[in-house]
């Protein structure tokens, strides 16, 4: 098991190198350079050239790439042009917010989707099943920003149940109060994002359960005289959760990458919002850093999925 994980991590190294090269080339292909915005019209072109030369912009691309990589390994992702802070610091401030928010929405999502999918699958064709299918159409069909805005308007502005922006109240002090305030700020976006994220899980689980019901091993279990509820809990649900488990790794890392829409609507300072701001203000160093970061996350997501699957399915257990 550990050997396989280590091997998979080693395989990731060339993947990350290729990814970083791609990200670097894309960044270089973007029009403009870090100095175009900071120089006045009267600046001597010779001075600009000297600045560019000093920043290494006239070096061949592989030399530039090498410098970038060496800096990367030193944890130096460069300087944010608009925030005038090291990129690492900027990301560090945001990542915690996103991790907690996505964790909450992931928990909400599974807590809602798994019971719904199980009910729909077990009683397929029933009234309950049809109601769940209709719910699914809504979560799938409604544009996310519409739901977020509506939620924000109703629960935030009209009912005043939840704060409408930010991650923490300015009055909060002390560990306990701060934590409570952070949680309070996460509840509305977390629940809304979680509920909207249930569609595929419900649908997958439903069809997996319907499929599992007619499997031979279920018949075997029933032939032993196992009561129906136990047949479901022990034989059907467990097998039906496999594809969900296989997908969980991607889901987790995908969420950490940040949800652009929800963070934008709720003015929640996380990775997603940072990404949008960085793009609109041409903050290239931040953009490349985030793209690289999400790329690496995706690689880890697939590893995580494989690990989760090998834990729940003995056929995939790796010796």
């Amino acid at each position: 098991m550990w050997k396989t994980i280590i091997r998979r991590v080693l395989i990731m190294i060339p993947q990350i190198v290729i990814l970083s090269a791609l990200v670097f080339i894309l960044a270089k292909l973007m029009p403009g350079d870090p100095f175009s915005g900071t120089i006045g019209p009267n600046t001597d072109p010779k001075q600009i050239e000297a600045l560019k030369r000093a920043a290494g912009l006239f070096d061949p691309w592989y030399v530039q790439y090498w410098h970038w990589i060496v800096n990367l390994f030193h944890g130096n992702l460069g300087q944010s042009y608009t925030l005038k802070q090291p990129v690492v610091t900027v990301l560090g401030n945001r990542i915690g917010n996103t991790v907690w928010l996505s964790l909450l929405s992931l928990i909400v999502s599974y807590a809602v989707a798994i019971p719904l999918g199980m009910t729909a699958g077990r009683f397929d064709g029933s009234r309950r099943d049809r109601a769940i299918t209709i719910f699914n159409y809504f979560t799938f069909g409604l544009p996310t920003f519409v739901v977020f805005l509506l939620g924000l308007y109703i629960f935030g502005y009209q009912l005043n149940w939840f704060p409408t922006s930010g991650t923490i109240s300015i009055n909060a002090s002390g560990f306990f109060e701060e934590t409570a305030s952070r949680f309070y700020h996460m509840i509305l976006p977390g629940i809304l994002a979680g509920v909207l994220g249930t569609t595929s899980t419900v649908q997958y689980l439903r069809s997996e359960i319907i499929d599992a019901k007619s499997q031979d091993y279920v018949r075997t279990a029933r032939s032993k005289g196992v009561p129906t509820n136990k047949v479901y809990s022990r034989h059907i649900f467990r097998n039906s959760l496999l594809p969900i488990a296989a997908f969980a790794g991607f889901q987790i890392t995908g969420l950490i990458g940040g949800s652009v829409v929800i963070e934008q609507v709720f003015s929640y300072p996380g990775m997603g919002q940072l990404f949008i701001t960085a793009i609109t203000s041409r903050d290239y160093s931040v953009v490349t850093a985030i793209v690289l970061f999400t790329g690496i996350l995706a690689l880890f997501g697939s590893l995580l999925s494989d690990i989760i699957l090998s834990l729940v399915d003995p056929r995939i257990r790796i010796e």
Binding site: D216, Y217, T220, D313, P314
Partner: peptide
């Protein structure tokens, strides 16, 4: 079918 008749996870 002796493969299908046993639960693969147990």
């Amino acid at each position: 079918d002796p493969l299908a008749a046993l639960n693969p996870l147990i």
